[in-house]
């Protein structure tokens, strides 16, 4: 028998193939976003050794486990503070936070706004399926009104967050929204965000046919694509105050914010150096033998 060379999928080196199949349901959009993510990495020719990915808990929280990068599956809502520590300790790392809407905006909401305020150089990809999917389809802070969930059997009446508006107000320098229908735009947007210094945020609307759509008689994954195609309007630069989502209304997508603000680590180093002069020692990681790299004897005294 002659062997036939099977061409490798260009995204394969980015994935832990030995962990396939993944856990996501048929029609789920998370895998699509991961494909866009890997395309963005290919396009941006990123040094993958220096790229780390941090996830929280939930369906999207599993992304870290499938990417062949330094990857961290942390606790619920705490991907951002973990990523903050990782980035501060080792600034040469490019740190991507990849998590879901419930993880980032409910239990982790406080961390998200503070990281945006500080403008820590993190790239946040938020897959928004409008629901807590891993636990069976409960109401999330992103669930629009008049939607049936497992914890809102008569429909939702809690107002939902408008994520781009919130993140812009908190200080993000890059804010965009796409759906899993917009695969090319999403990949391009991710690549663009990776080039940006500071706290970047992309919301990706992604279908959950198993829970959100089924309970609301909204069809399957393909129907979600048709819906996204039909109701999405690309409006770059749209005021984020005007991009709130509803159950069946227009989905405004595009790049909403692209601005400059001083990034956290650079600001910290410059400021401290200015204040301390020669006494300032720039942070460094442990050396290969596991010790602190030696330095000059400390001359100042801190006696109280």
């Amino acid at each position: 028998m002659s062997s036939v060379a099977i061409p490798q999928n260009p995204v394969e080196p980015f994935l832990r193939s030995e962990r396939m199949p993944h856990i996501w349901c048929p029609g789920c959009g998370i895998g699509t976003t991961v494909n866009c993510f890997t395309r963005a990495l290919l396009d941006s020719k990123a040094d993958l050794t220096k790229l780390a990915i941090v996830s929280g808990i939930g369906c999207t929280g599993r992304v870290a486990g499938y990417t062949n990068l330094d990857s961290f599956h942390t606790t619920h809502g705490r991907a951002i503070p973990f990523a903050t520590g990782l980035k501060l300790a080792n600034p040469e790392l490019n740190v991507v936070v990849y998590s879901g809407d419930g993880d980032l905006f409910a239990i982790g909401g406080n961390h998200l706004i503070h990281a945006a305020r500080r403008n820590v150089n993190l790239k946040v990809i938020c897959v928004n399926n409008l629901i807590y999917a891993m636990t069976g389809g409960q109401t999330a802070p992103t669930t629009p009104g008049d939607v049936i969930t497992s914890t809102a059997p008569y429909g939702t009446y809690d107002p939902a967050f408008n994520l781009p508006y919130l993140v812009e107000a908190a200080g993000a320098v890059y804010v965009a929204r796409w759906t899993t229908f917009h695969v090319r735009q999403l990949a391009k947007s991710m690549a663009e965000m990776f080039q940006k210094k500071g706290f970047g945020f992309i919301e990706v609307l992604s279908p959950c046919p198993t829970l959100y759509q089924r309970r609301n008689k909204m069809g399957d994954g393909l129907d979600a694509m048709k819906f996204y195609k039909q109701v999405s309007k690309i409006k770059h630069g749209a005021p984020t105050s005007e991009v709130a989502l509803s159950k069946s209304g227009e989905i405004v997508v595009g790049k909403f914010v692209d601005r400059e603000r001083p990034e956290y680590i650079g600001t910290m180093n410059t400021y401290l150096e200015q204040q301390l002069g020669e006494r300032y020692v720039e942070p460094h990681t442990l050396s290969d033998d596991g010790g602190c790299s030696g330095g000059e004897l400390e001359v100042i005294s801190c006696n109280r």
Partner: peptide, 8 residues
């Protein structure tokens, strides 16, 4: 803990 995995 993020910092520890970053190498400090």
């Amino acid at each position: 803990q993020g910092a520890v995995w970053g190498g400090v």
